[in-house]
Amino acid sequence: MYYLYIVAGLALLVSLIFSREKTTRSLKIAARRFIMILPAFLLMIVLISVVLYLVPDELISRYLGSDNKFTAMALASLLGSVTVIPGFIAFPLAGILVQKGVVYMVVAAFTTTLMMVGVLTVPIERAYFGLKVTVIRNIISFFIALVVAVVIGLSFGEIFQ
């Protein structure tokens, strides 16, 4: 996160050196864009706060550790789609799951849907792309995640033993 501010700060400085007028204008645009999308952001955070409460880490561990690999994969991809967990929490959790014996295929289904499919980010995505395209993009992403999971399963020798 720090490098974002180093980059933003430097860019702002350079911009200011070249044109004070353009810099003011860009800050106005930044503020306007932010205010416009703020309600969607707020809605997303509200949804996340409730869903994270309903789907705690233990629940994820329990479902992903299910005996049948394909049931576990289906559950993993659904859980990954409906939750938003930052990478610094999700990957250590994934690492623990692998150590517990959860297959890579299931972990891949979880982390990839977590990254690509966002049910909770729909408020924001919809504000820009409209509901229909949002739904299409998420469905496509869901299937890409499943393909990734299956190829990971094949590569780690988890499907045909």
Binding site: Y5, A8, A11, S15, S26, K28, I29, F34, L52
Partner: peptide
């Protein structure tokens, strides 16, 4: 739920200003 809300809001408030500043500069320059 309140703790979740605060933790997510602070994470995002940390990122959003920087990102929108860059978007604004991009638009103008």
């Amino acid at each position: 739920i309140g703790r979740n809300f605060i933790s997510f809001s602070t994470t995002m408030l940390g990122i959003i200003p920087g990102a929108f500043i860059l978007i604004g500069l991009f638009e103008v320059w």
